[in-house]
Write a protein that binds this DNA or RNA. Structure first.
Lengths: 235, 235
DNA sequence: CCTCCAAAAACCGTATACTGATTTTGGCAG
DNA sequence: CTGCCAAAATCAGTATACGGTTTTTGGAGG
């Protein structure tokens, strides 16, 4: 843990980012700079700067008591998917066009791991394989700005994704869509990839919305009402 | 100067961001935390954090000797426009659909200022009015994620825009495209807005590419070869 | 047992200080 | 005048320290 680059901030940032991608941080957790700092045996500043960067990128929100993973409202989900719909089908089509055998092998390997994990109901493995699949095809996108933007928008859903995969029916449908995209990649058909990605986007949006709606309802019944997340949204 | 929020980092960030939007920082300038700090009468840390944020957002790059505005390669320009083409026509169409009379008045006012500045060949005013026009129609975009992403992508071009407006012919053509978009907004025709924005995107890409190409050539002839911008690109 | 209030703790924001790396400067030799 | 080398300056990164605000805690009173 903590090797990338010779820069402490980047190292901490990468570490936290990975934890977030793996849904290893729950929205109820509080990330505190001092904790992270002496967990890694460093001072507050690098940890703080990494946290601040995650805030400015929209992954975390600052509260009066530590940093927390950002929870998406239903509007957030709709809005984020509107952007994803504009970008991902097109990007995936480009990826299909410019696909190399190496990357093709990677996405196939990731797809296999996804199906294996689905069969074993191994949610963490499913999450990880899902991330791998996405990162693999994004590698074939020649436009780094496009790839980075997409990556970022997908990562916003980490806090919801866990819930999506918890329900077997939803997970199955999600993975089915993924596998259809995978097949289209193997067929080297950019347009088929584009179309299937478009369909996938709509299905995914609905899945996330329903999961999030249920989460919000549960939270409502559990706690009558309370919340206190201040300013510091920045962006 | 330096009022927004009760937070020094945000204040410095906003100040720098504005300077960048106005092209008030040349790529040869070096932004140094200590300078900014005692220019504002504060310590290094807030200035440094603001700079770091601009780096992580891609507006600046860290060098071994201060921070500098990021210079776009021709590939960057093409890549950035590929993303803009996916987002802006659609977003503008939504803006046209959801336009309010207040915002319509704003974009008209901005458009008038653009034409006034164009007539007077007042480049700084043209730059400012152009920013205003964009910000005005983005206000009508109900999806904040969409609006923020677009805003960000547009802002990457600040270092090139100055060059675009310097050439009267290019500036005229650019502004003509803008005015056609404005007319479409006034007609409340989302599809017309969408189409015209699409055309505008292609024209703008070409304009930026040719300006940047010329800049690079000039730099080449002036200085045989040299450059030293290190790692720290982050994101 | 619950409520209210005050003391304590937690945590963020900012300031200052130190270190190491890199670049610039200035002088000395060729 | 040019090239080289060493001293000095510059600047990013990291550590430590302090102040202020908000939250939690714990006890006294109802």
């Amino acid at each position: 843990m903590l090797k990338p680059s010779d820069n402490l901030v980047d190292a901490i940032y990468a570490d936290l980012r990975l934890k977030l991608q793996r849904s290893a941080v729950s929205p109820t957790d509080r990330l505190v700079d001092t904790e992270i700092a002496n967990a890694h045996g460093i001072s507050r500043m690098p940890a703080r700067e990494a946290l601040l960067r995650l805030v400015s990128e929209g992954y975390l929100v600052g509260t009066t008591r530590g940093f927390a993973v950002r929870e998406l409202s239903l509007e957030d989900i709709s809005g984020l998917f509107e952007v994803r719909r504009q970008l991902e089908p097109r990007a995936a089509a480009c990826a299909a066009r410019d696909m190399t055998p190496e990357i093709e092998a990677e996405i196939t390997a990731a797809m296999n791991r996804v199906e294996l994990a689905l069969g074993a109901s191994d949610i963490p493995a499913l999450l990880a394989a899902n991330v791998d699949f996405r990162n693999a095809w994004l590698k074939a996108v020649n436009n780094p700005h496009m790839a980075a933007t997409i990556s970022r928008f997908i990562d916003y859903f980490q806090s919801v994704r866990l819930g999506t995969f918890a329900d077997p029916a939803t997970a199955y449908q999600y993975i089915d869509g993924l596998s259809r995209i995978h097949a289209a990649f193997l067929a080297h058909d950019p347009l088929m990839v584009q179309d299937r990605m478009t369909l996938f986007m709509f299905a995914a949006e609905e899945a996330y919305l329903s999961v999030r709606r249920r989460q919000l309802e549960e939270a409502e019944t559990a706690r009558p009402a309370r919340r206190r997340i201040q300013k510091r949204g920045t962006a």
